[in-house]
Design a binder for these strands. Structure first.
Length: 461
RNA sequence: GGCGUUGUACCCAAGCGGUCUAAGGGGACGGUCUGCAAAAUCGUUAUUCACCGGUUCGAAUCCGGUCAACGCCUCCA
């Protein structure tokens, strides 16, 4: 059985073979910390989380690096507008970012290199590019990458720059570059940059946006590594430029597989602050979404399809997540601690196969829910063996290691517990009126009562 | 203008040439269970896959065209 991933660069599903047997080196584009990341950003991060968890399940040793962009036009602009020193601004939003990652149960990367801590690596790489004849310092003092020096430029997004006539709007104010499409590696200092500057062989300035990922990925993962991910919007120019810089600087192929996550729309359109549908993780949790329902919603659509998010999806997701934790509890109490199992149900194989097929999460979830239905059915008619129950628990465990949709144990407050006991007593006395009143009372406290053969159970509404 | 993606039930969403008279989730309706609920379960909800042609023994799946939506072609996950 082989794992296949859709490679943006070849536009095909390809069998995944790591460069070094049993090990995967993964680089994922991280946030620019000038503001709080939104739900759309997290779609990509969650897709990457799933990819990583799946590769871990397959037994690979993972090295995962995610950059933190803490210097660029946007961070500088924000710091000026808000009159906050740039370090303070980026530190704040980096913290917020890590909080959100944790909330969504995204596994931490091995390294989160910050751009500002790797200026020297970038300078070194730029130097190499100049020495190799791939870059030049222009009249404005900035250093540019010359796309004419790299004939393969455009191979990721399949754009042909060679024969193209520049459009007028590009020509207008770009007199300093050899080719209007050349992109900046080192930006010469300008007044509005304030004290955001580093010394370099080309004078005071700061790195261009793309060079950080090339320099840092090379530093942490080597010149040539396995997988690089990001959102589709990063394909051009960001990733295209990374390829150019890296391959010219190191002389080696850069990345084997490029994977890109599609956009997330909200209510059928782009998210925008003015429409009031610009959501951050914090907002959504406030509105009653749980980390699990968010994970479900974001992972239930295949990563290469646009996902249309809306608040109304919450109900569907709540139900689905509840169904999963219900079967988990049901099986747990059925099996108790009597049996451990070394096997998996037959569907487990298909489940893994679905994910091996370019991370077909909808299919994998479908198989899982199908299995839940069958298992419930067999529990109902009392035909499930303990061994089946135990292997089912193992399946859920593996399932959860990838999707992470089981909520943690929730403590039931003492007040609710005592009301619950009262109600049980009322029920044994067949005092239905009191029992129903108590159920209402408990409901008003935010808990739903379920009478099961094993006694009353209770879950948050 | 160039490159590319998408169009499957009331909603979300798989499917990648035959096991498709099309999975799974949500919703709705009806039955079983239950003191009543909740949960679970059973049944119903697309002979049809935007539309029109073509290839094929066979197409939701391949090809051509039409319509619709969308993305990229310098700073956005």
């Amino acid at each position: 059985m082989s794992t296949k991933f859709y490679n943006t660069i070849t536009r095909q599903k390809e069998t995944f073979t790591p460069i070094k047997k049993g090990e995967v080196k993964l680089y994922t584009c991280g946030p620019t910390v000038y503001d709080v990341a939104h739900i759309g950003n997290f779609r990509a991060f969650l897709f990457e989380d799933l990819l990583k968890r799946f590769l871990l399940l397959k037994g690979y040793k993972m090295t995962h690096v995610m950059n933190i962009t803490d210097v660029d036009d946007k961070t500088i602009k924000q710091s000026i507008e808000k009159k906050i020193p740039i370090q303070e601004l980026t530190e704040t939003f980096t913290e917020r970012f890590f909080d959100d990652l944790k909330r969504l149960k995204i596994l931490p990367a091995d390294e989160y290199p910050r751009a500002t801590a790797h200026i020297q690596s970038m300078i070194k790489m730029i130097k190499k590019l100049i020495d190799g004849g791939f870059a030049y310092q222009a009249g404005d003092g900035s250093v540019y990458f010359s796309i004419d020096a790299y004939p393969e430029y455009g191979k990721l997004v399949h754009l042909d720059f060679g024969g193209q006539k520049s459009t007028e709007r590009i020509i207008s104010d770009e007199y300093t570059k050899d080719n209007p499409q050349d992109f900046v590696l080192w930006k010469a200092w300008k007044e509005e940059d304030g004290n955001v500057a580093w010394d370099s062989p080309w004078g005071k300035g700061r790195p261009g946006w793309h060079i950080e990922c090339s320099a840092m990925s090379t530093e942490y993962l080597g010149a040539h590594f396995d997988i690089h991910c990001g959102g589709v919007d990063n394909m051009f120019p960001h990733h295209e430029n990374e390829i150019a810089q890296s391959e010219c600087a190191t002389g080696e192929p850069f990345v084997n597989i490029w994977m890109h996550c599609e956009y997330l729309l909200v209510d059928g359109g782009k998210m925008s602050k003015s429409l009031g549908n610009y959501y951050q993780i914090f907002d959504l949790l406030e509105k009653g979404f749980t980390p699990e329902t968010l994970r479900y919603i974001l992972l239930n659509t295949h990563y290469r399809k646009t996902l249309n998010f809306s608040l109304s999806k919450r109900h569907e997701a709540d139900q689905a997540v509840q169904r999963i934790s219900d079967i988990y509890e049901r099986l747990t109490s059925f099996v108790g601690d009597k049996t451990a199992s070394a096997s998996f149900p037959k569907v487990f194989n298909d489940f893994v196969k679905a994910l091996e097929n370019d991370l077909d999460t909808p299919q994998a979830l479908a198989l899982f829910f199908n299995w839940i239905k069958q298992t419930n059915h067999r529990l109902d008619e009392d035909s499930l063996t303990l061994e089946d129950g135990a292997s089912g628990l193992r399946f859920i465990d593996k399932f959860n290691s990838i999707f992470d949709l089981l909520p943690g144990r929730i403590e039931i407050p003492a007040t609710v517990l005592s009301l619950l006991n009262e109600r049980e007593e009322a029920r044994t006395n067949k005092n239905w009126k009191l029992s129903d009143d108590l159920r209402d009372k408990i409901h008003k406290l935010g808990w739903l009562v379920k009478d099961t053969p094993d006694g009353a159970k209770c879950q948050p509404v």
